[in-house]
Write a protein that binds this DNA or RNA. Structure first.
Length: 721
DNA sequence: GACCTGCTGCGGTCTG
């Protein structure tokens, strides 16, 4: 049998030898065989730094060398979700490609026009691009796509899990379909990821027309995991005990100092709070600074500085971060991953943990910190049931079981559909409605959209007051004046929304940005970028805030979206509330908090009834399901006149103003009664192009993803049985 | 009750 190594082209073999690798890794050898022996699509699933990039490119480049294309065009395409990742991968692939005498072109917003024009002039070798830049190519060079990609044999999609059911993922899959239609043949798809929750679903996303033919290559063997969950109690009356924040920061300071670590603090505000506290500890101890904040509102310059310090590995560095450091560039090995507060998904926890313990024989270390509030007679049931702690435990239990959230497949994604309608018209200059339906909904990713809905979307875009599209006398769909304007602006290419922000400037240097709804006035104190400031001037027109250093500060307020918790996480939370098992990874405080939660859960009698008496004029409903179903019930009760607030697997229902008793309403829903969920006109505009749609379409879009009408009867059935 | 991601073409000025 021919070995994997022997199947590689000469220059590629030479490069492998120059790496002084002992041998090809298992996934690399398997990928070489899979790619050389068939045309099959492929998913390579292995931890970060597991050699996935090489697994894909060693055999793909070998094919290009052994069987060169007789026409021009890029030989291979790589799509990555981050600019930094493209820059990183370009450097990794450059030496290999130099040996193979193939050019490598990185292509994203920060790449010089000269590099791009060189690539377009003589397309060949590898093109590494973001979904947005590929979108721009379709819009700006629609008629050149055949010339540019006519020779392309494969597209490698990095961090595939970020490209599944997200708006951006739908966009990317639409672009891949459009690419295949432009070159009039299929192009092999290779997906790379460390965190796929459901392999069968991932295959269906990668190649919807033939998911069974997608080859799966998975790295076996998980790294050993060292795990601790520490509990803290905030709001203690004893003035001699430090605040919970100080206690967590002290533990981080004492245990992380001197090595490279990532601390995921959950929100930008908490990143600033902990980074400020840790900087203070360093200063008081006369130690050099080694704790730095890292989140999306900080200046690129500062973030580069922190990433470089982590990557270099010379000076000990701990980044206190949001999900900015969850995926992407290789920052080297970190000693430990800390998570402050419960995460929002097991998938995120798993991806974060993948940053630690990657060196052979090194265990991964996860330190989970949870802060709960001291209980008193006024405490809400959320505190009494310690829902933050219980969620953190549930997430860890599911992580240990090897589970993580699968993608949700059935959403319509009408905002992104609007975007793709405009983009295809721009690409081709004009298109007939049935052709458009074919590209996007039959061949493309919008398969949940039926012809009726599609026509409604086109009608909405063609309304005279919107003016996005119009129809010529021969039926061809064209861009209207507003559509032209939208598509011509560079802000069109991304399908996700971005908020308006102020720039924060100190001494002529930009520190970062703050959301515009921050009510700042001169003289106010601020913690930002890990330091303390006082606001000097605010320039509304230029959207600039000038600050200077100060001795004190308060953490800034950033906006945020409500998170979505999966049903299975909530089920596990209830399971943890209903058992007496004491996980060995929890410290004494965490265990006593969990005990408290269990006693209160029993006292509220949730074991025998799903509806408990809350504070005055209210009830607590244990829905036992995740955000989507719980939200659906909340909307339904809201439509019946109840005031409802939602928590993980619970609703607090104020029934003082309702006409029908709560239990009766739940019974009616259980027996199939329905209600107009949108009776009180809730906000339905969540995504970038939602504003162009009609209310019925927005309701339909919501019902396909954010709300699950069918669950209402089953949820209430379980509540009343 | 949260986080993240991305961006063209052109006209202007400056430098070697």
């Amino acid at each position: 049998m021919v070995s994997a190594f022997e199947k590689l082209a000469q220059p590629v073999q030479k490069w492998v030898r120059s790496q002084a690798w002992h041998e090809l890794r298992q996934i690399q050898a398997e990928a070489v065989h899979a790619i050389s022996d068939s045309d099959a699509d492929l998913i390579v699933s292995a931890p970060t730094a597991g050699g996935k990039t090489e697994a894909a490119f060693l055999p793909l480049i070998s094919q290009v060398l052994d069987d060169p294309a007789d026409i021009g065009g890029f030989d291979l395409l790589y799509v990555g979700p981050l600019k930094a990742l493209i820059t990183d991968q370009t450097m990794r692939l450059e030496e290999l490609c130099r040996k193979a005498e193939l050019p490598v072109y990185p292509w994203h917003g920060d790449i010089a026009t000269s590099v791009k024009s060189r690539a377009v002039k003589k397309p060949k070798g590898l093109l590494l691009i973001t979904p947005e830049s590929l979108e721009a190519m379709f819009v700006r060079r629609g008629l050149e796509m055949q010339r540019l990609f006519g020779a392309t044999r494969a597209v490698v999609i990095d961090e595939l899990h970020t490209m599944l059911d997200s708006e951006r993922g739908v966009q990317m899959r639409s672009l891949l379909t459009r690419l295949e239609l432009a070159v009039k043949r299929p192009i092999r798809r290779v997906g790379l990821s460390a965190t796929l929750g459901d392999m069968q679903m991932a295959c269906a996303y990668l190649r919807p027309d033939n998911p069974d033919a997608v080859r799966l290559i998975e790295a076996k063997g998980e790294a050993e995991l060292l795990l601790q969950l520490r509990g803290y109690v905030a709001g203690s009356d004893d003035e001699n005990t430090p605040s919970a924040t100080d206690a967590v920061a002290t533990h981080l300071f004492e245990n992380l100092r001197g090595s490279d670590n990532l601390v995921f603090a959950g929100a930008r505000k908490w990143v600033e709070v902990y980074a400020d506290r840790l900087r203070d500890f360093c200063e008081k101890a006369h130690l050099p600074q080694e704790f730095y904040p890292h989140h999306a509102s900080l200046s690129r310059e500062h973030r580069d500085f922190v990433e470089k310090r982590l990557k270099d590995g010379n000076l000990p560095t701990t980044a206190v971060c949001t999900s900015t450091l969850e995926l992407g560039i290789d920052i080297g090995d970190v000693a430990c991953v800390a998570q402050v507060g419960a995460p929002f998904s097991v998938a995120a926890l798993r991806q974060r943990l993948g940053r630690s313990g990657r060196r052979e024989g090194q265990p991964a270390i996860l330190r989970q910190y949870v802060v709960e509030t001291q209980l008193d007679s006024q405490s809400s049931f959320v505190d009494q049931l310690r829902l933050g702690l219980v969620r953190a435990v549930a997430m860890i239990e599911l992580l240990l079981e090897g589970w993580c959230e699968p993608p949700r497949p059935e959403a319509l994604h009408l905002s992104t559909l609007v975007h793709q309608v405009l983009s295809v018209i721009a690409e081709r200059g004009g298109v007939h409605a049935n052709g458009l339906y074919h590209v996007l909904c039959q061949d493309g990713p919008f398969r949940q959209v039926d012809t009726e809905t599609f026509v409604s979307v086109l009608r909405a875009l063609g309304r005279p007051d919107t003016g996005l599209i119009e129809q010529s006398s021969d039926g061809l769909l064209l861009l209207g004046a507003q559509g032209e304007k939208l598509v011509e602006h560079y802000s069109f290419y991304a399908v996700f929304k971005t908020p308006v922000e102020f720039r924060l400037v100190a001494d002529g240097k930009e520190l970062g940005t703050l959301p515009i709804d921050n009510l700042l006035t001169p003289g106010m104190l601020l913690i930002f970028s890990g330091r303390r400031w006082v606001v000097q001037e605010i320039h509304d027109l230029e959207k600039i805030i000038l600050v200077k250093p100060a001795k004190a500060g308060v953490p800034p307020i950033f906006g945020g979206d409500p998170g979505t918790i999966h049903d299975r996480v909530v089920e596990k939370m209830f399971a943890m509330l209903e058992t007496n098992i004491e996980p060995t990874y929890m410290d004494q405080t965490a265990l006593s908090l969990l005990g408290e939660a269990r006693r209160n859960f029993a006292r509220l009698d949730f074991a025998s009834t799903p509806v408990a008496q809350g504070d005055t004029g209210s009830h607590i409903v244990a829905t036992r399901c995740g955000t989507v179903k719980t939200n659906t019930l909340a909307l339904a009760l809201g439509a019946m006149g109840f005031q409802v607030t939602q928590h993980d697997g619970f609703l607090r229902v104020d029934d003082s103003e309702a006409e029908t008793p709560l239990t009766e309403v739940l019974h009616n829903f259980a027996s199939g009664d329905t209600v107009d969920l949108f009776r009180h006109s809730p906000n339905l505009i969540f995504e970038k192009f939602h504003g162009h749609l009609t209310t019925p379409l927005l309701e339909q879009d919501a019902l396909s993803g954010r709300v699950d009408l069918a669950s209402l009867q089953t949820t209430c059935g379980a509540l009343t049985s």
